[in-house]
Design a protein around this nucleic acid. Sequence first.
DNA 1: GTAAAGCCTCCCCTGCGGTGGAAGGTCAAG
DNA 2: CTTGACCTTCCACCGCAGGGGAGGCTTTAC
Lengths: 143, 143
Amino acid sequence: MRIGELATKAGLTAKTIRFYETAGVLPEPERQPSGYRDYNGSALARLRFVKAAQAAGLTLAEIRQVIAVRDLSGPPCRHVADLLDTHAADLDRRIAELAALRDDVQRLRDRAKSLDPSRCDDTAVCHVIPADDPAAHPPARIP
Amino acid sequence: MRIGELATKAGLTAKTIRFYETAGVLPEPERQPSGYRDYNGSALARLRFVKAAQAAGLTLAEIRQVIAVRDLSGPPCRHVADLLDTHAADLDRRIAELAALRDDVQRLRDRAKSLDPSRCDDTAVCHVIPADDPAAHPPARIP
DNA sequence: GTAAAGCCTCCCCTGCGGTGGAAGGTCAAG
DNA sequence: CTTGACCTTCCACCGCAGGGGAGGCTTTAC
């Protein structure tokens, strides 16, 4: 199977598959005499795993690590469980951050409705956003 | 006031201030005969606004837009309110996505605990993550 | 006078997950 | 024999918000 067929079956582009190879989540396949990549069914299984793992929020680096663990020491279930635990905790933290940010934004928005535009101060850009807000969080990175 | 002093007062680095200038959120200041940037107090007010707006989740591009609106048509309160509305809605959507993702991860994690590692299938990388999951969401980008 | 800060511009680097294009090889059909 | 689809490698770029450092001025302190 050549790369185009594999791409179609996996619902990806050939570009992405080559990228996955360089990213180390897909092993280098055999080559046909022409130099074309020659895939077998396991490549498709691998790509499906990668997609599922991505859907679970794992990065390609983490997926590569899971694969490496499996290759070195067998079923990586424990490792995967730990990764998932960490991700769940990260998500909880991020959800809390975003909820706090959302409340701040909502407050500012309500404030905007109650303020009189004509009383806008010329020195600030916009008095809806208080430049001297001491409660300002550090820029809420959304990594 | 030279850039270092402004940076200290604003709690930023000189690099960042130059970057803000090229990003269009800080106007180009006068120059001293030496070529050094020469800031007045309004630059500090502007930087405080930028920080507050960032804390409210606005990107530099949006902040630049708010400033442009103000320069063109006066107090941008309505525009800012719209932006904040949009951001609050975005945040709500993102929080819902992350909550759904978190539930999925949690489910996988619980599954990992209940599975028998010795029954790991050799064809898949790890049976904790089901490669044929039909409910798999598209990779949950966390931009 | 001289050394140390401080400032200037310029270009490259980061992480993440790819995407786009150029220049060229290969294979099947007409 | 040529056309077109497909493949190869390599290099560059996207957004986002800066950070690192080179090589060269200017200002300040002793």
